[in-house]
Design a protein around this nucleic acid. Structure first.
Length: 595
RNA sequence: GGGCGUGUAACAUAGUUGGAUAAUGUGUCGGCCUCCUAAGCCGAAGAUCGCGGGUUCAAAUCCUGCUGCGCCCGCCA
């Protein structure tokens, strides 16, 4: 709790000095209490024991005696070798209610750190619909974008479009050479496109891609075909405008379909940058020229060029090829050019990548360093698999995001209709759509990115405690209390803006109220840590805790009782609803008015 | 074979700049709607934190060996 720390540190510093304790690290030892019931900040006194020849608890006791309690420091205790500080409840309430604790804005309207952050995420090859596995990148990336904005950073969300190379080449070739009939006969053993998505190009065009991939494996046809595709790819890599245009016409409708899905999840981008740009504008040529001059540069028999990263401490595979024997560039080479370009436009650079890109990313990073550039921050995530095993479009073992969104909405509709029969169809639909997307996002964002994730329908559609709907529900409760007050002729706005004099308030505020205050007081601390460590799941957990704390407060503190409003409770409820709202926006959960 | 990551209650997870009695949800068992939305709340049972060693006043957290799982080791993207 940063706001408390500011008050504790001076007092504690003086107390340590007076006891003759010399330890330059004491500030970092003073940490958030593990035992929540003991306090907000705690100092373990074990390391001082040897120096003073006293027991840790005696030291803690001694320190506690020499620090004055009052105001911010509500309570000091010495237990089991720890010195515990608890924030004063009234002080905490005053700090929060007077607006001294920042609430933030997840949409970046009030940028105030002045830091420019560029986050590249998703960047999936535009060759087919999003499945749940691919979506982990998008959800992680978008959440990070939102959290940075909430913190006050200026963020640009960027999608790097792979508009050249083999994958798009195959798609373009197929669209040019195969008829509807060809595709259907080649894929006769595969399920057809669901009629629901028959007008979405990501679902329809992927059939052409799949058919071509199947043909390529067929020995009879493959040679000629491979040559033709190879020609296209080669042309694209040398910046042939007409081929790049053909590629663009092939993939753009697919990409549009994918973006439609992402938009439904609340994910949008500020900019799309095409890979081919770095070939056509000459950046790649300049880069390869520079790389050829480096000390660690090497040439293979056929003229291909590489860097010996082993000389810089790389373990495992040490040769990093940046130029083919035929002189063309490789994906990673273009990626380096892209990174140099990105670095000219921001202070911080973050990439969201699947764990399969670890080696590649390391090579890019080391090369950037070799060229005197900074290394980007990279958030790696482990793949999502299904209970049946690895997700694979080819084997038909796949869950499409479009289907998941539909399923989640349908499931939510059923629940709303059951619970709130008085709601109109339109409202049910709106609530269900919001609940569905929020639940899907939260289900994925709550787990640590480096851990494997097994997608289960029953978990994705569980709307109970520990889910987004649980948080959404707490938020609507807060709003409904305010509405009830309004219905009873109370001017909520006037009470909300009133400055309450808490000096004479009974200091024994309900425990659940104080817990809610403490939870709100650390929201920014958690946000900061979550952003700094690139771990959105930490903040997801915080918002969940906030919702739980609010529910406890709601249980114990009657805001409107027997015609009377408790003004302090109402103010706290209003404040909590704001914290919940911004927290939810930071996670991409939709704050509803009622549900 | 080499590199990187991961293993926490029946299940899914949180917690790793070392710090107290390892937290939460599902599931199980028991309680709470004449009372601001029960998608909620309260309580109970349930864990040798993968296994062995080491460092430390203190290890789920750091080091090391083993082991299960995942990813990578293309002049592919």
């Amino acid at each position: 709790m940063k706001i408390l720390r500011m008050h504790v540190e001076p007092a504690l510093g003086a107390a340590l000095e007076s006891m003759g304790i010399e330890n330059p690290n004491w500030k970092s030892m003073l940490a958030q209490s593990r035992e929540h019931s003991q306090g907000d900040l705690s100092l373990p006194c074990f390391p001082f024991a040897k120096q003073l020849g006293k027991s840790p608890n005696d030291i803690a006791e001694g320190l506690s005696q020499s620090i004055e309690v009052g105001g911010a420091i509500g309570e000091i205790s010495a237990t089991g070798g720890y010195l515990n500080f608890k924030a004063g409840a009234i002080w905490l309430a005053e700090q929060l209610l007077s607006g001294k604790v920042r609430i933030g804005d997840a949409f970046g309207n009030k940028s105030d750190t002045g830091r420019q952050v560029l986050i590249e995420h998703t960047s999936a090859n535009p060759n087919g619909p999003f499945h749940v596995g691919r979506a982990r990148n998008a959800i992680l990336g978008d959440t990070l974008v939102r959290l940075h904005r909430l913190l006050g950073n200026e963020v640009r969300a960027e999608y790097y479009v792979d508009d050249m190379g083999k994958q798009v080449g195959v798609l373009a070739w197929a669209l040019d050479n195969l008829s509807d009939k060809d595709v259907e006969s080649i894929l006769e053993d595969k399920d057809t496109v669901s009629t629901k998505w028959s007008d979405k190009a990501d679902h329809t065009r992927v059939r052409w891609y799949q058919a071509a991939q199947k043909l390529r494996k067929d020995e009879v046809n493959s040679q000629k075909m491979e040559q033709e595709i190879g020609k296209l790819v080669h042309a694209s890599e040398h910046g042939d405008e007409s081929v790049l245009q053909q590629f663009h016409n092939s993939f753009q409708p697919v990409l549009d379909g994918m973006l439609e899905t992402l938009a439904r999840l609340g994910i949008e981008f500020d900019q799309f940058t095409k890979e081919s740009m770095f070939v056509t504008n000459g950046d790649v040529a300049k880069l390869t020229e520079t790389l050829s001059q480096l000390d660690i540069h090497g040439v293979a028999d056929n003229g291909a060029e590489y860097l010996d990263l082993g000389a810089r401490g790389m373990k495992g595979k040490t040769e990093f090829f940046f130029k083919r024997g035929d002189g063309s560039s490789l994906y990673a080479t273009r990626d380096i050019a892209y990174h140099i370009w990105k670095w000219n436009q921001c202070d911080d650079l973050i990439n969201i990548l699947g764990e399969d890109h670890k080696l590649q990313s390391k090579q890019v990073g080391m090369t950037l360093q070799e060229l005197g550039h900074k290394i980007p921050e990279v958030l790696f995530y482990s793949f999502i698999k299904l209970p049946e095993g690895k997700m694979s479009t080819r084997r038909g073992n796949v869950v499409f995001m479009d289907d998941l969104l539909e399923e989640a909405k349908e499931h939510a509709s059923q629940i709303v209709r059951e619970l709130r029969s008085e709601y109109s169809d339109q409202e049910v639909s709106h609530i269900a759509e919001s609940v569905g997307r929020s639940a899907i996002r939260f289900n994925i964002i709550r787990v640590s990115p480096d851990k494997g994730f097994t997608f289960r329908w029953e978990e994705a559609l569980a709307f109970e405690a520990g889910s987004a709907p649980f948080i959404m529900y707490s938020h609507t409760r807060a709003l409904s209390i305010a509405n009830k007050c309004v219905d009873n002729g109370i001017d909520v706005d006037i009470i909300t803006d009133k400055v309450l004099d808490l000096t004479n308030t009974d200091s024994t505020l309900p425990k659940s109220l104080v817990d809610l205050l403490r939870c709100m007081a650390i929201q920014n601390d958690v946000l900061e840590r979550s952003v700094k460590q690139c771990r959105p799941n930490l903040f997801a957990n915080q918002v969940l805790n906030l919702a739980t704390s609010f529910n406890g407060f709601y249980r114990d503190c009657k805001i409107f009782d027997e015609g009377e409003v408790n003004e302090l409770y109402l103010q706290i409820s209003q404040l909590a609803s704001k914290f919940l709202k911004t927290g939810m926006e930071g996670l991409g959960i939709i704050p509803l008015e009622r549900m």
